[in-house]
Simulated scan of single mutants.
Amino acid sequence: MPESAQPASAQPASGVTDGAALPAAVLFDMDGTLVDTEQLWWQSAAEIAEELSHPLTDQDAPEVLGQAVEHTAAHLHRVSGTSLSEAELAARLGESFAGKVAADTVPRPGALALLAALRDARVPTALVSASPRRVVDLVLSVIGRDWFAVTMAAEDTERTKPAPDPYLAAAERLGLDPAACVAVEDTPTGVASATAAGCAVLAVPSTATPMPDGERITLLASLEQADLALLGKLTAAPAV
């Protein structure tokens, strides 16, 4: 693992000094990054998988965590041999997940404080999610819509994560170069999407799934360790 991808152990600074660099924008994943919903998604998939006589294991995690509804539905259809169609499975997954999100959405530690610091510094933010729009809207009704200048849901691009399309589209809507933006993600799927788009990535894992290495990937244990000074360093030009 390169030095930039090592977990940060030092306490973050309280803010930035005068004249310190800031990213052009910060693009946040939603599930597992801003709100603690990744486990709710796993629960929905696990409950349906159990009905299909395919109890989920760690081997299924890459096909569930961080993936779009349609991807997980296709996986469950493939491994279970069910007579239900992929579309039927996707509908059931979506209904189950939406119900759990509506009942139990909790911001992750440090998420709202970081959003407030970015707002105070006038750094634009976007929400870039692979979840359906109805789930995104449910979460926004809990944490607030006004944090974000742009919100992207699964339906907003032809391809969703791990393709770069959602991050490219968010940066385009903000009128910015993706390379000048920081993406905040929690899964390898999301990191792959943001990296392919050219963003610097702050990875804050929500599960034990190993994160990919990369020169522009920085790993933290919690958003409580993130601040404006760190975000600014992630997009700063390297010293010559």
Rank of each mutant, 00 (worst) to 15 (best):
M1R: 12
A5L: 03
A8Q: 14
S9Y: 09
A10I: 10
P12R: 09
A13S: 14
G15F: 00
D18F: 08
D18S: 12
D18Y: 07
G19E: 01
A20E: 15
L27K: 07
D29Q: 06
D29Y: 02
D31H: 05
L34F: 04
D36V: 01
T37M: 05
E38V: 11
E38R: 10
L40R: 10
A45H: 05
E47D: 15
H54W: 14
P55I: 11
P55D: 09
Q59W: 02
Q59R: 12
P62Y: 05
E63Q: 13
Q67L: 12
A68E: 10
E70G: 01
H71K: 11
T72A: 06
T72Q: 06
H75S: 06
H75V: 03
L76C: 05
H77A: 10
S80Y: 00
S80I: 01
G81R: 05
T82D: 01
L84R: 15
A87Q: 14
E88V: 03
A90K: 01
A90L: 07
A90I: 05
R92I: 01
A102G: 02
A102N: 13
A103K: 14
V106P: 00
R108I: 11
P109F: 04
P109T: 06
P109Q: 04
A111T: 05
L112H: 01
A116H: 03
A117E: 05
A117R: 12
R119H: 13
D120A: 15
A121S: 07
A121P: 11
R122K: 14
T125S: 15
A126K: 03
A130T: 15
P132N: 08
R133K: 15
R134A: 14
V135H: 11
V135C: 09
V135A: 09
V136K: 09
L138V: 02
L138Y: 04
V142T: 14
G144F: 12
W147E: 08
F148L: 02
A149F: 00
A153G: 15
E155N: 12
E155L: 12
D156M: 10
D156Y: 12
D156P: 12
E158K: 08
T160F: 02
K161D: 07
K161Q: 12
K161N: 09
A163N: 07
P164E: 10
L168E: 15
G175P: 10
L176F: 04
D177Y: 03
P178N: 08
P178Q: 03
P178C: 05
A180K: 09
A183P: 12
E185G: 07
E185L: 09
V191H: 07
T195Q: 11
V201S: 02
V204D: 00
S206G: 13
T207P: 06
A208S: 14
T209M: 15
T209N: 00
M211A: 02
D213N: 07
G214F: 07
G214S: 08
R216L: 10
R216F: 08
I217M: 05
I217H: 04
L219W: 09
A221R: 15
S222N: 04
L223S: 03
L223M: 11
A226H: 11
A226L: 08
L228K: 11
L228N: 10
A229F: 00
A229W: 02
L230N: 02
L231P: 08
G232V: 08
L234I: 12
A237F: 01
A239R: 09
V240G: 11
